[in-house]
Design a protein around this nucleic acid. Structure first.
Lengths: 225, 225
DNA sequence: TAGTGGTCTAGACCACGGT
DNA sequence: CCGTGGTCTAGACCACTAA
């Protein structure tokens, strides 16, 4: 039987295509947390045998996105409030670290770019454009963090980014969170400009803790109703 | 052909045994950084076919310990000075976070245990027992961090622990590092006792930065000679 | 244009949970 | 003790590299 994966770029093994597609579906919530992953079913859907499916699942388990119970089954990890709290706390210190490390490598061009992004983000928040809001916020932070040149820290940040973003997409924000984000970003920009490492680190951490508390509150409210 | 893996506990799939054994060999340096991993060779050594070997490699790639170049080869990641700096900086903030979070959950019994470990560590350092020194130091930190109840942060800490420890084993310490560790630990214990969250976090971070600078210096010296 | 070795397939095997 | 489905084997296939 020939492979029938559509869009399969030649030369790219199908376990990689499968892995990326499954990861995206998990992160975006299309495959919900806790869902069972049935290799034979996935193999049928993609027109391949079980081997590349297993390859993809093995990698995702290594990444911590799914759990394989040997000889039993594979399931998407649970992402509950405790998980969110853990990740946001972790982010607080990691983003603080990356922001601090980026300071010596900031250039006028980067500051210019950050100002532009902030302006676009303000418009997105005021006009209620959730999709732009999320991606511009991402870009703001990523623009700073790539300068830290700490790929391990950046990798951890990126790993959970889509997951948390999906939760924001599902549970929304409180109305007062928008202005607070703009305020935080402005303060961070100012501290970056004055090269105040300790202040930058503290502001970034507080920013993350604010995000954490807003998301946890939204999750808890949605559970009550 | 029957499986001939010795010590293979029944019910445990061989890709898991292989994965754990390969991980251990990589972390301990028995399989050196940058080494090529040849599935057919590994399969022969363990008396299994290539499929479980690939399963093990896929998981290790997901964990970031090895890199698979599709259609080409799999190699152990490089762990150079830049990597060490990244990990130690990361640890500085993550360990600071976990120490801070653990404070509300400290009990007299835990403080007692930490004092005991410190005393044993002092003896190990003074008598030059490197193996005890490393494991007692691990135990000191882990005893605090498990109380943070942030399994994501703890997982990142644990993930690189063996790797950094192996580097310490290979490159050693400077003579003045031993007393400094004892001094740092004593200060951390005192701050824990007085429940001073900000101070604990700062001391832990400084402790990590000290470890980083010592290890980097040892690595750089060994390269010169 | 080989040769090497990474990837994939079909099917057998067998651990586990429920009957 | 049977059924489901997770695991493993042997071998074919084929992408990439080096002549």
């Amino acid at each position: 039987m020939r492979s029938e994966v559509p869009n399969s770029a030649i030369g790219v093994p199908s376990y990689i295509l499968l892995r990326d597609q499954l990861r995206e579906n998990i992160i975006s919530g299309k495959i919900p947390a806790g869902a069972r992953l049935l290799p034979v079913e996935i193999a049928r859907r993609f027109g391949v045998s079980q081997t590349p499916v297993r390859g993809a699942l093995q990698q995702l388990e290594g990444e911590g996105l799914i759990t394989i119970f040997p000889h039993r089954e594979a399931r998407v990890r649970l992402f509950d409030e405790h998980f969110v709290r853990n990740i946001c706390d972790l982010w607080g210190v990691i983003e603080g670290l990356m922001a601090r490390l980026s300071i010596p490598r900031l250039t006028p061009a980067v500051m210019e770019k950050l100002n532009d992004i902030s302006e676009c983000l303000r418009i997105a928040i005021e006009s209620g454009d959730m999709s732009s809001r999320l991606s511009l916020n991402q870009e703001f932070h990523r623009t700073i963090y790539v300068l830290s040149e700490n790929s391990e820290a950046l990798g951890i940040f990126e790993k959970y980014l889509g997951l948390i973003e999906a939760l924001h997409n599902r549970y929304g924000f409180h109305p007062q969170r928008g202005p607070k984000i703009l305020e935080d970003h402005a303060a961070i920009l100012k501290a970056l400009h004055s090269q105040d490492t300790a202040l930058v680190e503290e502001l970034v951490r507080l920013h993350c803790e604010g995000a954490r508390d807003d998301l946890l509150a939204c999750m808890s409210e949605s559970k009550d109703t």
